[in-house]
């Protein structure tokens, strides 16, 4: 989503990613935790947070912990996605080690453009599907990119593969989340955290959408909103505008 002009500096992207990962792991991103994770001093963190706040990506009041704004959450999710995608490419295609891939991904994630990333993911798909049975040929890959179809003799078609995203991004992607409003029916997962403040947040939590609660998205209403989920042994419906406050892991 981020336009090229407004793109964050590499260091700010790192901060955003760190805050996001902390939120996912423990629902909390405190300045001291961020400093610890990034291995920097607290004042540097405060400085970075101030820049991020100026860009409307985080809120840092009135508590010591840092909250991501909607926009911030979107960008953070995007960075985390780039990170895990690059890392999975490095491990599965180039056969780099976990640690090497991790540290390389930390660098590449900031530079890579969405289109390039998409190609990398597709190439990983292609290699996985075709690498076993056939000699890999560039024209086959180009065919796949243009038409979305593997040449004969390759494995299953990517779109038929329900766990597609899990295979391209294997266990390395422990931490990634999405909004409840974006989850498709039939998907199960756990609640990561509920963002926002005030009555809606409180109400959602009272109805049982607390961190770590398991849920399943049952269906979307015929007109596209609201959605129905199952959690804590009962069925709950909520509007997408409410579900977007709920960050979940699948």
């Amino acid at each position: 989503m981020a336009e090229v002009g407004s793109r964050l500096s590499r260091s700010l992207e790192d901060y955003l990613e760190a805050i996001y990962n902390l939120k996912l792991r423990s629902q909390v991103a405190r300045v001291k935790d961020i400093a610890h994770v990034m291995d920097v001093k607290m004042p540097s963190v405060t400085e970075a947070i101030r820049s991020l706040a100026a860009k409307g990506l985080v809120k840092h009041e009135p508590y010591e912990n840092v909250e991501l704004t909607d926009e911030g959450l979107d960008q953070a999710r995007d960075i985390a996605h780039r990170h895990s995608a690059v890392k999975s490419f490095l491990t599965s295609v180039l056969d780099l080690s976990e640690e090497e891939s991790e540290s390389e991904a930390c660098g590449i994630e900031h530079a890579i453009r969405p289109d390039t990333l998409d190609r990398l993911l597709k190439y990983a798909d292609f290699v996985r599907a075709c690498g076993q049975n056939k000699a890999l040929r560039l024209d086959h890959f180009l065919h796949y990119i243009r038409h979305g179809q593997y040449p004969d003799g390759c494995g299953s078609h990517p779109h038929d593969d329900a766990n597609h995203s899990h295979k391209t991004a294997p266990a390395a992607v422990a931490i990634e989340s999405t909004r409840l409003s974006d989850v498709t029916p039939g998907t199960k997962g756990r609640i990561a955290f509920v963002s926002g403040h005030g009555p809606i947040r409180k109400r959602l939590m009272e109805m049982g959408l607390t961190p770590d609660a398991r849920f399943e998205v049952v269906r979307v209403a015929p007109l596209g909103d609201p959605i129905e989920i199952k959690l804590r042994g009962y069925h709950l419906s909520l509007r997408k505008s409410e579900a977007k406050y709920v960050e979940v892991q699948l």
């Binding site: 005030g198 809606i200 959602l204 009962y234 709950l236 419906s237 909520l238 409410e242």
Partner: peptide, 10 residues
């Protein structure tokens, strides 16, 4: 007033 829709389907 926010009127959350959050509603149980009993």
């Amino acid at each position: 007033s926010v009127s959350p829709f959050v509603m149980e389907l009993p």
